[in-house]
Structure formats: structure tokens, C-alpha cells
Nucleic acid binder design. Structure first.
Lengths: 198, 198, 198, 198
DNA sequence: AATGAATGAGTGTTCATTCAT
DNA sequence: TATGAATGAACACTCATTCAT
């Protein structure tokens, strides 16, 4: 008797997500070239062949990872925040607290940030593969908050985009630290804010 | 013919340095796993075999690169600076200006910082390979300057080591940017100082 | 419930035959190495696992195919024909007409001939797997008819076995054509006869 | 000191040809799917990697083989023959003798014919890869000789193209035999001619 | 010393086969 | 019994390393 079609789809979806989730961490830590399918599959505790049931190639798997490692949720938060009737200082305070909180507790979040920023840095090559629109909108929204801060006299002078870039660069820096280092001293929200606030 | 022998050694030394210099950049950009000897040799415009005349293996080459990519010169500067009868604010100002200046103009400097920090992050694995003593002394000297700043009331509160780590982390961040991005906005010395100064 | 059991056996037999029939065509067209179980099962519209309910392995399936792709029926016809009180010319004429007729209309027949001849050509390897006695009896009966023709002065000179081999070789040739080509010009019975008749 | 550029090219050309020549036989005997790179390289007595120094992939190697396994030389002969002021019977006699001679003595010739005809039969798929123009010109020249024979009353009736196809089909048949069978009885030029001559 | 063709261990990928459902 | 996801041995291919020139 055939398996129920529905159940089958569920199982597939579940396995696919397991592979994606575990691979995200692996790729973030070891890079594309440094990740071997054999190690990866041992890490996920599946056979090498199983990966190829769900993905066409190592590269395809990597691209799918980048697709799911987007900033949809983060963007939503920043959007909401930027619209609230708050001072830039408060907005950046709340944002920083949330971001650092997740960096500490959610390894996947750190991996996502690390992977995306790496791709953005290497850039050029295969931009097509990656939808960077979420990221760039986060940057421009952050820049707007900084601009608001400059008008309010709480943010430092300088190009808001440069400062936003600086702010998220520091987030990337601590994403790397949390990915690679077991014992490290996390900066405080104050430290992070200081990139853009007086 | 002692002179000819001398000349021979010179030529050898020159080739060896060329390989080291070009490889430093290549490894910094592509990582160890992402660097193929075939690509590397094409980049240097020598035959693959030539690399093995000067280095025992890819790993040996990499270790030699790390050996020359030390912070001897930087350490010297920081040492001198920390001993001068200056305020912490001025010391950090001068340090920041010099570091950002080199980051902009000296690609090798950026590569050196990127490579070292990467190794430090991945850490654990082969610490033996890398002499991190220069780096850690720079860190502790920077921490001392920050401590001085805290006494003088110009530096922010918090663990001086954490703040030094933050300061150099940002330097690493912009080393990466200058390595990978062609057009980017460099932060100012003020921006960099703000990681640790009020 | 004896009836239900009987019915069950029937269904099994039916499925088994479907697999054998469809596989015969597939193997004839693509060869053993060129036939993937995944493609085959998709072609039959069953799951891959189902094949293994009826056959132990790909090789077992192939051997079973060769077992059913015998020349029992053809042998019977040639036997009857060779015993009739007819001239060699008439015998070969009737044989040629029947063979070409089936080649045109019965894809399974073409596949059978193609597969068997291929196996005979590659030969040596696994002769054990294939009972070539039917085939060789057809050859020797054909040789006898040719001998008769030589006595009657209608067949060309030369070793009767060589000529029989030639005759059936041409049949193989057009079996291949009908298997692979959609539009081709079939030779006439006269053309086929001419391999052995003046 | 670098190897002489010229000598290098020679060595490369030589090895490339060795691989092509030996692979032609191997692919002709075992087909594309049935040919393993490991077996092939063992057969040529080189390392597997060496094949990839000269060819991008197994498929690329196969395509190159088809490119060299053309009928340029055969076409030249048929062209000359068809222009000579001879009767069709004599032309076909000479052609048949030459072809059967080469089939017996030149394994490469048999492999070439076997491979090309196989490709032509499977056809459709990747016609682009193979230049079939030589082959089709041989066919049409042969058809013209047959037409001449029909006018002279020596060739049998029927579509000249069909008969040319038949003639070369038989050549393919005995190419297969000479490739696969060690002991077989080769047909005579007379036998071959009889496909198209009365 | 410098070369680049040759190597083979190691990596990515396929596919016959198994097995829980 | 029929299914198709999971498996891992076998295959295609890569790349650090060697070596004859």
C-alpha cells in the first residue's frame, strides 16, 4: 500500500528543512569550499546520497540556504520600529538590545548574518543568486533612523548610509564571534549604539 | 665564484617573497580551503611546481604566510605610543588615524589583519601554528590605554579587554571591506575611537 | 478463500509480465548499462521498489527477460517450414516474408532479436545466462535449407552456416532500425533472400 | 629550466591521440554508459586524472572521439571511385573488396563504423555533436552508383537510397562482428555486393 | 631552478538496492 | 503488495603533489 501522499510530503519537507538548517550553520562556519558533503552529512547524521535526494548539487544546496537565510523577519521588526513615534535614540536602543539578544541565544541568527555579510562582501560574483533587497532595505531604514537622530542632535555627524553600514558591520563582527568563539565578551547595547550615537 | 652564489641566494629570496606576498592576498581573500594551488600559481604567473621548490606543501606555505604576517611593526608603534606622555584620547586618536590610513593605502596590511583575525576566530584548531603573542600584546597595550582613558574620564566604562577587542574588531571589519569591496565608505578616526571613547 | 488466492496470483503474474515486457524494450534500446532502474520504473509507471518485489536485482530482471525473449515460436515455425515438401527458394521466401512482417508490426519481436543478437555478439562473458540453443537450432535449420538450395542450384555457393549467419545478421540489422528509427525504408523479402539466393 | 615549448606540445598531442585512439575502441565495444573512466584509464595504462588533463569530461571525450571517427578518408575513396569510367558492377566490386579488407585488418575502422552507425541509429538526441555530412555523402554517392547499375541492368530494382542503406548496414553488421567476435566467418565481396546487384 | 604533464587520494554525484510504512 | 525516501558502494571528477626534463 502506498504511503499517504500527504504524509510523504510532510516527511520530505521535514528532512529538507533539517538539511537546510544544519547546513546553514556548517557553511557559515566553514565557508563553501571548506564544507565537504561527507562531513556535512555525517554532521546531520544522514547518508551522503540523501542530500542529493533534496538538492541537485552542493552549489544548489548553498543557494537554497541563502534563500532561506533572508532578513524577512528582521526587516519586519525594523520597519515597525522605524514607524513608531519614538526618538532615534530609543529606536536604536531597542533595536540594539534585540539584535544582541538574538545573537547571544540564536545560533541560526548569527549564522544567517555571517553568511549573508560574507556573500555581500565577496559580492559581485553571483549576486543573482541572492536576493539582497531585504538587507538593503534594512540598511536604508537604519540610515533613516540615524538621519532622524542627527536632526534630534543625538546621532553623530556623517553620511547616514556609512553609519548604518558601520552599525550592521559591528553586528556582523559579533555574529562571527558568537559563531566561532565559545568564550567571548559580548558588547553591550550601549557599545553598539555608540557606533552612531554621540 | 662567491658573488654568483650570493646573487643566487638573492634571486631565491626574491622569488620566495613574491610568492609569500601574492599568496597572502590570495589566502586572505579566498581562505585556505578556497585557494587552489593552480589558481594561486596562475595568479603569481609561475608554474605550480615552482611553489613546491620553495615550500613543502600548501599548508607549509600558509604557515609561512602567517609567520610573516605578524604585527611586529604595529606592536612597535603601539608600544612607543603607549609610553608617550599623552592623554588616552590623543593616543587613541593617533593610533586610529595611522591604522585607518594604512588600511586605505596598504592592501598587504588589510590582508594581514584579515588573515590573522580569521585564524584567531577559527582558533582552537592549530593555535600552535600561529604565534599570537604579538597580537595579544597589542590587545593588552590597547586595553591599558583604554584603562588610562577611563581614569581620565574620557573612555567609556566596561572591561578594558572587551573594549580593546571591540576596537580591533572594527579594524578587522574594515580590513575585510577594503579587501573585498572596491567602493566603500571608510569610517573616520572619530568613528573608530567612538568604540571606546565617550 | 481459494478464489481470492488464485486472483492474487493472477494479478502478480500480470504485473510481472508487464515489467518484463516493458523492460525488454527498454533494455533493447538502451543496453544493460544504459538502463537505470529509476528511468525504467518511471517508464513502466511503477515505484522503483516494486521491481524488487518481482525480481531480485537488475541483473536478475535482465536474465528473466532473456529467458522469455527466446525463439521458441520462431523455431517452431522454421521447423515446420523446413520439413514441408517445398523448394528452398519457396521456403526462404515464406520465411523472409513472415520475419519482415513481424519486424514491421511487432516491436517486441524486434526487441527480442536485437537483445539476443547483442548478447550473442558480446557473448563470452555470461554465456551461461542465456540459452542459445533455440537460436543455434534456427541457424542450423536455416543452414540446411540453404544447403538444399545449393543442391537445387538456387542458393549461392559458400559455407551454409556463414550464409545463415549472414541472413539472420540482416534480420538483426533491420530489427535495430525498427527499434531506433521512426522513419526508415524496410527492405523487401527479395532483398533479404538475396543474401543467400542467386 | 623550462621544457621546450615545442616538445611540450608534441608530448601533449601524442598523449591526447593515444587516449582518443584507445577510447574509440573501448567506447565502440562497451557503449557510453558501459564505459567506466577507471576501466578506460587502466586499459590505456594512465591515471584517471590524466584523462581530465586532456578532456573536460567523459562526455567531452566521447564527442571528441566522434569528431575524429569521421569518414573523411572513406569518403575520398568513394568519391574517386564514383568518378572513374567504370561499370557500377566493377565499382561496387572494388568498393566491397576494400571495405571488407579494412574491416578484417583495421580494428579502428570497424570501431569507427560501429560507433557512427550506433550514433546514427540512436540519432535524434545530440545530432549536433556529430557531423554526419561525410556519412550522408557516402550514402548518396553509393546510391548514385546503384542508380548507374540499375541503368546498366546489373543492380536490382528499388529505391537506390534504400539499397545504399542496406549495403552500408551490412558493412556495419560485420564491423560489429569483427569488434565483438574473435572467430567468425567474414562474408565475401560477392556476398556484400549481392545486397544491391542481381 | 623552473616547468607542466602525470599522478592518485580525496571529493562530489549517481544509482541499484533496502526498508519502514 | 506497493511505495518512495534513505542508503552507501561505485562512479565521475578535482586538486595537491611529484618528477622527468
Amino acid at each position: 500500500m502506498p504511503k499517504s501522499k500527504e504524509r510523504c510530503r510532510e516527511i520530505r519537507e521535514e528532512m529538507r528543512n533539517t538539511i537546510l538548517r544544519k547546513s546553514l550553520l556548517y557553511f557559515a562556519r566553514n565557508g563553501f569550499a571548506g564544507t565537504k558533503i561527507s562531513d556535512l552529512s555525517r554532521n546531520i547524521r544522514i547518508a551522503q546520497g540523501t542530500i542529493y535526494v533534496y538538492f541537485e548539487s552542493k552549489e544548489d544546496l548553498f543557494k537554497e540556504i541563502l534563500r532561506i537565510a533572508d532578513y524577512k523577519e528582521e526587516l519586519r521588526q525594523v520597519r515597525v520600529l522605524s514607524r513608531l513615534p519614538l526618538s532615534a535614540r530609543v529606536k536604536l536602543g531597542k533595536l540594539s538590545e534585540r539584535v544582541l539578544e538574538r545573537l547571544k541565544n540564536d545560533e541560526m541568527f548569527a549564522a544567517k548574518i555571517a553568511l549573508n555579510t560574507q556573500i555581500m562582501l565577496e559580492g559581485s560574483g553571483d549576486c543573482s543568486a541572492l536576493d539582497t533587497s531585504y538587507q538593503s532595505e534594512i540598511f536604508s531604514l537604519t540610515a533613516k533612523i540615524i538621519e532622524q537622530g542627527q536632526r534630534e542632535g543625538t546621532a553623530v555627524e556623517g553620511s547616514p548610509m556609512k553609519l548604518a553600514d558601520y552599525y550592521w558591520g559591528v553586528v556582523y563582527l559579533y555574529a562571527l564571534k558568537s559563531l566561532f568563539t565559545t568564550h567571548y565578551e559580548m558588547i553591550s547595547a550601549d557599545d553598539l549604539e555608540r557606533t552612531v550615537l554621540k
